Amino acid sequence: MEFCDDCGSMMKAVDGVWECGSCGFTKPKGDAAQYTVTDSQEATEIIESSEETSLPETDAFCPECGNDRAYWYMQQIRSADESETRFFICTECEYKWREDDN
């Protein structure tokens, strides 16, 4: 994502250049290698599960293997005025499922 140097609006990539839809300012599109992810930015939204995890555990029935324990976390995936979605990861088979409020 790139922002206009003149007016600050978000620019669009058009044929190898960045073009501002508001004021018409253009500049060459840089190499993808020049963009970096800092420590404060997340490179991914995916939460990987492993043998050692900091996620809390709870009693939850795994629909895949029948285990009765799972790690869990909550994530806002719909509009802000709706409740969060609960995600579970089985402690045995690492099957992942979600539970929505209906």
Rank of each mutant, 00 (worst) to 15 (best):
M1C: 10
F3S: 11
C4T: 04
C4K: 03
D5M: 08
D5F: 05
S9Y: 07
S9M: 10
M10N: 06
M10S: 11
M11F: 00
M11T: 02
K12R: 13
V14Y: 03
V14P: 03
V14I: 15
V14D: 14
D15Q: 10
D15V: 03
D15E: 14
D15P: 02
G16A: 09
W18M: 02
W18F: 01
W18Q: 00
E19L: 15
E19C: 08
E19F: 02
C20D: 00
S22Q: 13
C23W: 02
G24H: 02
P28N: 12
K29H: 07
A33N: 09
Q34G: 05
Q34M: 15
Y35Q: 14
Y35C: 05
Y35M: 13
T36S: 13
V37N: 09
T38D: 04
S40I: 12
Q41N: 11
Q41E: 15
E42T: 11
E42M: 11
E42F: 09
A43H: 08
T44H: 02
T44A: 05
T44P: 00
I46D: 13
I46E: 10
I47A: 09
E48V: 10
S49P: 11
S49R: 07
S50T: 12
S50Y: 04
S50M: 07
S50Q: 11
E51D: 15
E51C: 02
E51R: 12
T53C: 10
S54C: 08
L55S: 04
L55I: 08
L55M: 09
L55R: 08
L55H: 05
P56D: 12
P56G: 07
P56N: 13
E57H: 11
E57L: 13
E57W: 03
E57Y: 05
T58C: 13
T58M: 14
D59P: 03
D59M: 06
F61I: 09
F61Y: 12
F61E: 12
F61C: 05
F61P: 03
P63Y: 03
P63N: 07
P63L: 07
E64P: 01
C65T: 06
C65K: 08
G66T: 07
N67A: 11
D68G: 06
D68E: 12
R69K: 15
R69L: 06
A70F: 00
M74E: 13
Q76H: 11
I77C: 04
I77P: 00
S79L: 09
S79C: 12
S79R: 07
A80Q: 09
D81P: 01
E82I: 03
E82Y: 01
S83F: 04
S83E: 15
E84N: 10
E84M: 14
T85Y: 00
T85G: 02
R86N: 04
R86Q: 11
R86D: 01
F87N: 01
F87D: 02
F87I: 03
F88V: 02
I89D: 01
I89E: 01
C90G: 06
C93A: 09
K96S: 10
R98W: 00
R98Q: 01
R98S: 01
E99F: 04
E99D: 13
D101Y: 07
N102G: 09
